[in-house]
Design a protein around this nucleic acid. Structure first.
Length: 656
DNA sequence: GTTAGGG
DNA sequence: CCCTAAC
């Protein structure tokens, strides 16, 4: 949690700043942008101990906040850095806030208004709650106020009042009050390294838990809200969500508000709390235990912050009434986890547990968001995401993140087009997942043009078939950027190719089809070799790279030099720069060249050209091949047979 | 690891 | 291009 605590003790002079760690809060995550400022209020005893602020002190601060505009720091922009208000307590016991940085005027008025209202409500509820809960141990509650009108997120969590600002450049105000009654070390841990085990106290969190009363629950909030009239609920709702509501359903209002108020992941650890609009101070207990709890709560809070970020983003994106539902859902989900967690095991409330419970839904949520954005609902997306957790095990999983940035719909369309309007829907996921790793996309884009130019230079290039291939070679995203029209009509050779595939048109084959023709021009980027898992568990090279004239020449030269059969050597000598050409590839190609050279007659040129729509291998090369073959007695056994027509699997004999 | 050959 | 047997 982005918490900054500025503590000064007049008696002892400056208090060690160990308890203050701005960097951790400021750098911990991108979220911080959303929580630029957080304040904590702690009283420091003469001996340096951190003591929880008393109610009176709290009130002092509250009053201060209410009437002291200058005392508030306002962050006008998301880009603002953390500001810190240090609370100084003189020997006389007087608390005072200190501005550590300049104050931005923006939104000051708004903030104050909010604050005032909040304070009102807090006090009101506090009074009520005092009556009701006076006998109970301190409870926590979170007030989370989301002001949509200003796009500010204003919330009170764990006693911290803070506003979260979306990524937009909307001015935001974030302030947080954190009343802590933990010892210094505890405080330190809480503030600077919540996730570490630097807690000195030996007492366990569980001990604290057992001592503490049950966590606040939604019911608490409702109890308080129960007292409110509909009108008040409406007001509260307005303050909470930043908009009016016409809902008359008291229950609904209460639920919504309480949900929001308890949305944060407060843990019963913190010492002070803003509970359901009421600031509650915990009784001083085992301070060390408290420290533990604080640390724990901080962690969960941190986690929560992330969650909420997502949540808020969503809610802010979805405006109006409709948003309520979605928000309810998401919040409910979070809450459920939270509540569940708290109820489930106070003693089991480990940091990890808290994080896990919260994080899981978050991921999912993000995924869902992405899916919504893409407008294309593909159930397999989730699956692909799951695999992401495995890192790079699957090069394909890698692609996911980037993909989100692009229009899925277009991708989808393209894919359909590629099928020649067959209407067969190729699972986007499959395709995407089979795409090259994200990092390669750039290289593809970069190299593609080069490949094209090279092709052009070669002169013998087949534009029809090739052009298409080249286009399809690029991942969907790129394809979109290029001319999608290219894919509308599969090259004539395409169907033939497909037929040649021994494998039936299984999904896998189709998935592979496009990728295969993908990189004829990308051979420069050697890293692009991507293998895909086959049904058998083996790996299969994903891309088809048509042989270029240059490669053929190199091959012939290599054979001339080293002799046919010495593929490894040829590969080493002539294809060292073509990592995607394996010795097996050379062998296969040579085999096809042989067949072609013997099957091929000048008269066939025209026919073959028309037949395949491709540029035939120049006769002079074939002649050379034939010569070499004859020299080495490599005349194909049955060059005349019909078998020759097909050449080695998938190859168009005598063509590049 | 290479080669050869079938698919 | 893939897969494999045979080196």
């Amino acid at each position: 949690m982005e918490t900054v605590v500025g503590i000064e003790d007049n008696d002892d002079g400056k208090l060690e700043d160990s308890g203050v760690d701005r960097s951790s809060s400021a750098l911990s995550s991108p979220k911080q942008i959303s929580n630029p400022v957080v304040y904590k209020l702690v009283r420091v005893e003469g001996d340096g101990r951190l003591v929880p602020a008393t109610d009176d002190e709290v009130m002092e601060v509250e009053d201060f906040l209410e009437c002291e505009n200058s005392g508030m720091h306002v962050v006008a922009d998301t880009g603002q850095s953390l500001e810190c208000i240090s609370i100084e307590r003189s020997s006389s016991g007087k608390l005072r806030l200190e501005c550590s940085e300049g104050t931005t005027e923006a939104d000051l008025g708004k903030l104050n208004a909010k604050f005032q209202y909040i304070e009102q409500m807090l006090q009101k509820v506090k009074q009520e709650e005092k009556l009701r809960l006076s006998c109970r141990s301190p409870v926590h509650s979170d007030v989370n106020i989301d002001s949509q009108c200003s796009a500010d997120k204003f919330s009170v969590m764990d006693g911290k009042v803070q506003s979260e600002t979306p990524y937009q450049e909307i001015p935001s105000i974030v302030s947080s009050l954190n009343y802590t009654h933990s010892n210094q070390s505890g405080s330190t841990d809480q503030c600077s390294k919540p996730s570490e085990g630097g807690i000195e106290s030996g007492s366990s969190a569980s001990a604290v838990h057992s001592n503490l009363k049950p966590d606040f629950s939604m019911s608490d909030g409702e109890i308080c809200l129960d007292k409110l009239s509909i009108r008040e609920l409406h007001e509260l709702f307005k303050v909470t969500f930043g908009r009016e509501t016409t809902v008359k359903d008291k229950q609904w209002l209460k639920r919504r508000i309480s949900m929001s108020l308890t949305n944060s992941c407060d843990v019963s650890a913190t010492t002070f709390i803003v509970k359901d609009n009421k600031i509650v101070k915990k009784i001083e207990e085992d301070s060390s235990a408290s420290a533990n709890m604080n640390a724990a709560s901080l962690i969960s809070s941190e986690t929560m912050a992330e969650e909420e970020d997502v949540n808020f983003r969503d809610s802010s994106a979805v405006e109006g009434c409709a948003m309520e539902d979605s928000q309810v859902v998401s919040e409910t989900r979070l809450r459920n986890g939270n509540t569940e967690h708290q109820l489930e095991g106070e003693n089991h409330q480990t940091e990890q547990g808290a994080a896990k419970r919260i994080r899981k839904p978050t991921k999912r949520y993000i995924e869902e968001l992405s899916e919504n954005e893409s407008r294309e609902h593909n159930p397999r997306l989730l699956l692909s995401n799951k695999s992401m957790g495995l890192g790079h095990l699957s090069p394909t999983s890698y692609v996911r993140p980037a993909r989100n940035a692009f229009s899925e719909a277009r991708t989808f369309i393209t894919r359909l087009d590629s099928l020649g309007g067959s209407g067969v829907q190729i699972p986007c996921v499959s395709r995407v997942r089979r795409c090259l790793p994200r990092k390669n996309i750039a290289s593809l884009m970069k190299f593609h043009p080069t490949g094209m130019s090279e092709t052009a230079k070669l002169g013998n290039k087949l534009l029809g078939d090739r052009g298409s291939d080249a286009g399809s070679a690029i991942p969907d995203k790129v394809l979109k950027l290029r001319s999608p029209l290219k894919f509308h009509q599969p090259p004539a050779s395409e169907p033939a190719k497909e037929k040649q595939c021994p494998v039936t048109c299984t999904t896998e084959l189709r998935q592979e089809l496009r990728p295969k023709k993908t990189d004829p021009y990308n051979h420069i980027s050697d890293n692009d070799i991507v293998t895909v898992p086959t049904a058998k568990g083996g790996m299969r090279r994903k891309h088809h790279r048509a042989w270029t004239l240059i490669e053929v020449l190199k091959l012939v030269d290599g054979v001339e030099r080293c002799g046919a059969g010495r593929w490894s050597e040829i590969k080493r000598l002539s294809f060292s720069s073509y990592s995607y050409r394996t010795s097996v590839d050379l062998k296969d190609k040579w085999r096809n060249l042989l067949k072609a050279s013997f099957a091929h007659t000048p008269a066939d040129d025209g026919i073959n050209s028309r037949k395949h729509g491709t540029v035939p291998i120049p006769e002079h090369i074939l002649v050379r091949v034939r010569k070499l073959a004859e020299m080495n007695s490599q005349v194909p056994a049955n060059f005349n047979s019909s078998k020759i027509a097909g050449g080695v699997h998938g190859d168009r004999l005598g063509y590049l």
